[in-house]
Nucleic acid binder design. Structure first.
Lengths: 218, 218
DNA sequence: CCGGCCCATGAACCATGGTTCATTCCTTGT
DNA sequence: ACAAGGAATGAACCATGGTTCATGGGCCGG
């Protein structure tokens, strides 16, 4: 017995793993999952192609990992807002503005997470991601109905509509021209949010809140 | 010069071409574009793989053709309703109900047209398809605003929201369970439409119109 | 019925991109 | 310093699925 993994080594291994994930994440947020080819990830991480497979059993697993890491961040952020003790209507506005605002500021990444063509496996992760969004929306709507802030509706369907409307209006062929979004993202976001609020009978949003997350995403 | 295409021959050729398109269309509406592999289309059409290439320069062109044929049908149907001289609000309701109703009844095909992962070329066709939807919606909204039936809004954005909300709520991971849609498609459709109408400030829809297109799509 | 040409055939070909593995390089404990 | 592994390498391998092409069969005008 002449070898045992030492701390220094396992630290280096962990670092390499991290490096792979970071390289892959960067590629994804630059060019979507399509850009995260194994050999490209390896190049970016400064290692050999084969080395990837010492850390991840397949490309699929690597991508899944990336998807989870990135999407978890987004979901947590929304969940945090949703869990505040503000009135439902306020939480709704903030959640929608955050969702839309982050999507518009990190469009490439949002595209990868929400709309890019991906294979079955990632589609599963994406389904979870989107269902989580819908649940967050649905719960707030539920609260709003209970508290009388919102009229009765089928919250599941309304939540699905919201979860569909926002990305569609912001990314892909139906989004405004990119320069328009770059110049005045808030206006577009506000209009989309207004549509969704009206859709659930919440009237016009308050257009003043300054504490809402506005930083760029990637 | 000892050969010239005779009518009989060109008829047979046209028939073969049609056969290929039909085979491909059937495959697409059963399993999406992924199921329309060249060799499979050939088998279904009862010809050899290579023969396809005597009629279409590439798979891509074949798929594009299919996409156009199918989507044109859908667009025309909506355009027809949109062009009627009914009040904007009525046209809006009918267009939305038709759109959603047909999507829910031809879900596999709707998935292929609206949501299935496809490559860049088909994505272009899809973009056109979706933009056309949005334009149809937008024009009606415009009319409604001019006539005072609807409040002012950014019609482009509202149209994009609608074009996103309906498919998302009907197909994919955020749609209700399939059996639910099979059992009671109209209820779901009505709720989605209600959301969209409310989104543009058109209040509740009239839930009675019986003349609306309700036949299955595929 | 024949020469010429088009049409159909389907197995071979090719491109892409993920995966493997024999080899080499490093680390560790003695 | 050295033996015994683990870790890294990257070129070869493989699977998938679109595309080609040499070949054979049928249709045309004379």
């Amino acid at each position: 017995m002449a070898y045992r993994q030492t701390d220094k080594v396992s630290a280096r291994l962990a670092e390499t793993r991290r490096g792979i994930l970071d390289a892959a994440r960067d590629l994804v947020s630059e060019g979507g999952f399509a850009a995260a080819q194994v050999s490209e990830v390896a190049r970016r991480a400064g290692i050999a192609t084969g080395t990837i497979y010492r850390y991840f059993s397949s490309k699929e697993e690597l991508c899944r990992q990336i998807f989870r890491e990135v999407s978890a961040q987004e979901m947590d952020r929304l969940a945090l807002i949703a869990a505040s003790d503000a009135p439902a209507r306020t939480r709704l506005v903030e959640v929608l503005q955050t969702f839309a605002g982050r999507a518009v500021r990190g469009r490439r990444l949002a595209y990868a997470l929400l709309a890019e063509p991906v294979d079955a496996n990632l589609a599963e992760e994406r389904a979870f991601f989107r269902r989580t969004h819908a649940e967050i929306f649905a719960r707030i709507l539920e609260d709003g109905i209970v508290s009388g802030e919102l009229p009765e509706t089928n919250v599941k369907i309304a939540a699905a509509c919201i979860a569909g409307a926002i990305p569609t209006a912001l990314i892909g062929p139906l989004a405004p021209q990119s320069h328009e979004l770059d110049e005045n993202p808030d206006r577009v976001v506000d209009e989309i949010v207004a549509f969704c609020l009206a859709g659930v009978g919440a009237g016009l949003p308050e257009r003043k809140a300054g504490k809402i997350e506005r930083r760029a995403k990637a």
